[in-house]
Design a protein around this nucleic acid. Structure first.
Lengths: 172, 172
DNA sequence: GGACTGTTACTCGGATAAATGATGTCCGAGTTAACTTGG
DNA sequence: CCAAGTTAACTCGGACATCATTTATCCGAGTAACAGTCC
């Protein structure tokens, strides 16, 4: 029951990317610098977000990352699942049928009650994460964050975002 | 976001211990055999449950483990926290103040909104786990489990449980 | 025959190695901007 | 002066070491039952 450190970085980066203009991008190196992280390692997590269609990557000079869709359509669950994997935290190893009292398969058609209960809890966890959109994070930060911190963040974004010449609308 | 394998073993053992009579005990070796696990390693998890006051251990010959309180008063959350640790899965490393835009401490009195959202989800997870009592697991198994499996489990318990001569009521 | 004592075998408990996964780093493929050069 | 070609630098992407956590194991401390012995 421990989430990797990359989840925090991924969410912070996504929130920062929500502040860049339309089709502009921000390089992974800039975000790594903003949070004091290893650039090469942050790329690993950003690539996971890209593979999950949450971010888009633009190669070449003046390239970088950008949200693949509006912040209102990105939930914390999307990000967590992209970084940590989609499989549930509790994996039933069916140890009830690993001992000497192993019956034939017809006795284990019903799912393990323990597994059911654990998965129910995990559904609650994911539902709570799905309720929070990335735009909520940004809005909450804009509303309740310290004004100096907001100003510093906006200044950093303004300084490091790289506008793109074309491709303002990307059809998939 | 991955729970250790010991959680499953711990819950199964607790459920099995819920089937032993009053003050009888069952040895860790017996439970390890029942689930095909390494006896020495299972002891590690059982000790964690003992340290968390969920189980009681009786040393010596005819010793073993026993529930420390009624199954109605043990929740899945108790077991999970005992094995996996009590700290939340998401630990906010405050990476927002690790970069070059570090303001003075007065700008970070408000908790990080991301941390708040993640902890809210974790509260939902723990609440769902707290709703399920160990007695519910046992009752559900008795009601919906395969009759042959129930009979085999009961026979195993009957064969391996060790009644205690005295100390029927233990005051702490 | 009963009670005490020493032994013994069984239990838990913690200290000690191996393995898996997470973390961190490096170098290469690809792409686009800028520069150079010719018209 | 303009445009095409070339260069070059910057980007992402994946392959390669390093470290921590989890998993697994072994041996020792402790305890209660059991057998033997004395009263």
């Amino acid at each position: 029951m421990k989430l990797g450190e990359g989840v925090e970085a991924a969410i912070h980066c996504a929130a920062m990317l929500a502040g860049v203009d339309g089709n502009s991008t921000m390089s992974g190196a800039a975000m790594a610098e903003a949070f004091g992280l290893s650039p090469s390692y942050l790329l690993k997590h950003l690539n996971q977000l890209t593979a999950a269609r949450i971010l888009e990557s633009v190669p070449g000079p003046a390239g970088g990352y950008r949200l693949a869709r509006a912040a209102e359509r990105i939930t914390l669950l999307d990000i967590v699942l992209a970084v940590e994997g989609r499989e549930p935290a509790f994996r039933c190893g069916e140890i009830r049928q690993r001992g000497p009292i192993k019956l034939d398969a017809s006795a284990y058609v019903k799912p393990c009650g323990i597994n059911t209960a654990m998965l129910k809890a995990e559904r609650a966890y994911r539902a709570a994460l799905a309720e929070t959109k990335l735009s909520d994070i940004v809005a909450n930060y804009a509303a309740e964050g310290d004004p100096r911190s907001i100003a510093a963040s906006c200044a950093f974004v303004e300084r490091h975002q790289r506008p793109q010449k074309s491709a303002s609308s990307k059809q998939i």
